[in-house]
Design a protein around this nucleic acid. Structure first.
Lengths: 146, 146
DNA sequence: TAAAATTTTTAGGGATACCTATTTTTATTC
DNA sequence: GAATAAAAATAGGTATCCCTAAAAATTTTA
């Protein structure tokens, strides 16, 4: 069973592997704020599940199955974060709250979030409503009312 | 400690209490899709934590502390659901995915989501960008490009 | 009001995911 | 290459939250 925590570990391994050649137990421990002993246990479980390949004391890498899940969780995370940024949540909070929301979402939800983010990002000019929304946040008044 | 699951139980009790005079073990069990025995255990724990008041075999009600948490989780839920509806997620999926995202969010995030929802809801006319977004979802093209 | 049905509780377990302390293995440095 | 330092694994525990089966309490109905 792919639990929330399994998703977290796979995402963490994927994220670390973007920055480092070899992913090690201590890297995951510091990424997820858990003790190395906990990581060792979990990695062994992920190994049995066929999601990571590793041998004792060796580096950790994702199998194709693990990579697929890790990337998709990361993708959900990134898009949720962008959605939060669009509605004005500060960067650091958007980052950590995306972690809370990123699990188990229905593919349809993920699809709509992604489309919305892309809609805003690919807009030829910064949409006016975003400016209006910012004004609304600051003043509580719809700009067209003034 | 207010765990994710404690939040779920308090929200469920609050939700049921809006529809029924007395909240009972079986109501919570069916709301959360767990067995009555599990609910009894949890309710006893919530009682010790001062979040619900109840006596064996009796009805369950929230204390002021429990009510406050239950209402705020429900509020987060409702606003997340509305946000998902705005970006076009179908009703039933929005409902269930809001449950996944509703926990532990930073107050700032909740604030921005609420403001965004309110911004859209209180807009004097349906914002044009929403129509544009719907077109974008269907066609993949920004309407102003055509 | 007594039997039957329903609801709730208790008892005994299980899985997940975390921890500390200790040992083992690997890597570094002298 | 041996001593030291760092990293990883093992052993033994804990908390949370779920389950089934059986007992007890409550409610319904005949």
């Amino acid at each position: 069973m792919i639990t929330r925590r399994v998703e977290d570990y796979l995402e963490a391994i994927y994220t670390i592997s973007l920055k480092k050649d070899y992913v090690r137990v201590k890297d995951i421990a510091s990424e997820l704020n858990v003790r190395p002993a906990t990581v060792t246990e979990m990695i062994q479980k992920l190994g049995e599940m066929g999601l990571v390949s590793y041998e004792k004391h060796g580096p950790i890498s994702l199998t194709s199955k693990g990579l697929e899940i890790g990337m998709s969780v990361r993708d959900r995370h990134d898009n949720l974060k962008k959605l939060l940024l669009i509605i004005g949540v500060p960067e650091d909070i958007a980052e950590s709250d995306a972690c809370i929301m990123e699990h188990y979402l229905h593919p349809k939800t993920v699809e709509h979030i992604k489309k919305f983010v892309k809609f805003v990002e690919t807009s030829p000019t910064t949409p006016k409503w975003i400016k209006h929304f910012k004004e609304y946040v600051d003043t509580g008044v719809h700009s067209c009312d003034r």
